[in-house]
Design a protein around this nucleic acid. Structure first.
Lengths: 370, 370
DNA sequence: TTGTAGGCGTTATCAT
DNA sequence: ATGATAACGCCTACAA
């Protein structure tokens, strides 16, 4: 059971020309006699024809394909990111080749290898940590690589993302300054980003001599996890007056648990989410969340790659993005303002909310290896 | 700016052998002198090496790759389906190559062409309708094709899915038999599946001489849409006593709107979702929903493909799956029982809940669950 | 144990 | 306007 793929040769034989003529017709119809062209068209319409990517991959030419290894398809965050990358890529005549890693380093290694084996011209990664082999293969291949999501210390190549620790720190400080004294961190799936936010939370509490209260589970986050964890927390730590959540899924779960227990939001407890997904827009009360620019991150990653691919000078780019508070009703107005103010202070340098391609290569950072 | 991909030749030159020896070492290390093998290993460790897929694609050999074009990444339904397909594929030494269509036929055509251009050995589709060119290209290539999600009349090749019209019909009948008289259909994104369910809804109402009430929007479904639409419906059609929703997203939105307006569920209004996503498990009350076996669908699609690819006889398989009611608290017990009873009646032939590969090629057509 | 030749589908280059 | 040739990376088959 094997497919019979139609090749240029098949078409050519049927028409009575060589495959070269058919190839020419496909790329440059006017270079072929009108009569011949019509005959070729007729046969293609009859047989169907799908070009084979292999020769392009085999030749030294660019494949005009960018590999994108996202952490997950069940986290809505990444579908926005994919859309942004695909939109920009298509506009430039590139295509995105997709894979997902399930947040696992070995799986990322598999998938990056897979993508590279298709001779992608560049790679976009969303996982924060890579296996040594992944890093080596990428560096040796010398293709542009963009690591998304977090600001990282030693990127393989380019980097666009948020400093989650700093952001968490600023948010918690805002809550403390507004009078909250028993702030809890609601974690889930102890990945790097969750841990970064936790570090920011801990730093802020320590600064004010407060006791940390961290609740969470190893499991992937969802509403159920958020609600269950929150019910437990309300039993064990009833004096809690603010919840900082690692993402909007668990935040909504927590909100459900609070409403169910008759806790008033934000009077008794304020709730702050992370990511600003659409889900939070519908809840009553609407969830206040820290918004990250997912679509733009995907788009900008492709933007950087295109610059690398088309200009020969290589902007060595590490972009830190500024967060925005997505206003809802789960924080008091005062709290929201305090947090926004802290964001403004931390990002006083007016870092871009997403990279501005025009400016990008003026700003240069670390040198690129290889 | 172009990558320097490392080839067998690069490794071979450095070691001082021909690329054939390196190739042999990679596929069959013991066929190479131990000393040579060690030298090759050292150089590969130093340089890194990622095999090039092009030669495999170019040779007549199977690529052991299956194309999967899902409708969406923002619908959680498809991430389960992808997981099922990937798990089964990997187990058999195959890989899945992914693309998404955004529910658009032209986009599906692009993506199917793209996948085919990588010489995939088989294709899995989740969109219900394809462009003529898509169909022709797939048919001419003669590779196994599985269309998932719905039972369809004239599949390109194989088909695994649900009869959404029949399922909706049975569900609505259950509600009517339990005494509901003002049943509303809450639609979203007027895709084929949504329309199928609407058709079942209309058929049932017509049978009882009832007036249909359909609310919805063209926009992709999410909580916001569900809640907004429901608020509107409650104004215009206040006597509504049951809501049949095209998916769980809008169902939860509707639930939020009802709770907010002080409507009691299921006393005043019962709510029935569709798909049985995890989201509905957390809501209070827990959403009652019609569960579809997404993971198993992905897995079974690969299963069918492997059978085609490995045996030469080709089971011409069209599987209709049986739905299950995922019990929650948004229907009365009586209603849930009535619907389950109707499902049992419609599927009295004991259709499989998901295909059983062992049995499948003994009988063509519909089969029983293991 | 290692090497050589040829072929897979397409296109750039160079004939005719 | 069309054809012939070579090249890309790897593997199968055969040779040394």
């Amino acid at each position: 059971m094997k497919g019979n793929r139609i090749t240029l040769e098949d078409i050519a034989k049927r028409v009575g020309v060589t495959k070269m003529t058919v190839s020419r017709y496909l790329t440059n119809p006017e270079k072929v006699a009108k009569a011949t062209g019509l005959k070729i068209k007729a046969v293609i319409d009859e047989f169907g024809y799908v070009p084979n990517r292999a020769p392009v991959m085999l030749s030294q030419a660019n494949t005009k394909t960018i590999g994108l290894a996202v952490s997950s398809f069940s986290n809505l965050l990444f579908s926005d990111l994919i859309d942004g990358a695909e939109a920009r890529a298509r506009q430039a005549g590139y295509e995105i080749m997709l894979a997902h890693t399930g947040y696992r380093m070995e799986e990322e290694e598999r998938k990056v290898t897979q993508l590279m084996s298709y001779q992608v011209d560049a790679m976009i990664l969303t996982d924060p940590i890579h296996s040594p082999l992944t890093v080596k293969n990428l560096k040796m291949s010398n293709i542009p690589v963009v690591e998304l999501m977090s600001v990282i210390d030693h990127p393989i190549d380019m980097n666009i993302g948020y400093n989650h620790k700093k952001i968490a720190y600023a948010a918690i400080k805002g809550l403390i300054n507004s009078g909250r004294r028993n702030i809890m961190y609601l974690a889930a799936r102890m990945d790097t980003r969750t841990m970064d936010r936790q570090a920011g939370y801990l730093t802020a509490l320590r600064e004010y001599g407060m006791e940390p209260h961290i609740y969470g589970s190893e499991a992937p986050s969802n509403f159920t996890i958020g609600a269950e964890t929150m019910r437990k927390a309300l039993m064990e730590f009833p004096q809690v007056d603010a919840i900082f959540c690692t993402n909007d899924d668990v935040a909504i779960g927590a909100m459900i648990a609070c409403i169910e227990q008759g806790v008033r939001i934000p009077d008794d407890i304020s709730i702050l989410g992370y990511n600003g997904l659409n889900i939070g827009d519908t809840t009553i009360p609407k969830l206040t969340s820290i918004r990250t620019a997912r679509y733009d991150m995907g788009k900008s990653a492709v933007e950087l790659i295109l610059m690398r691919l088309h200009n020969d000078h290589t902007p060595d780019t590490h972009m830190e993005l500024t967060p925005m508070l997505s206003l809802g009703q789960t924080l008091t107005m005062e709290e929201s303002q305090a947090i926004s103010r802290h964001f403004d202070t931390l990002y006083a340098l007016k870092l871009p909310q997403f990279p501005d391609p025009e400016e990008m290569h003026k700003r240069s950072g670390r040198r690129r290896l290889s």
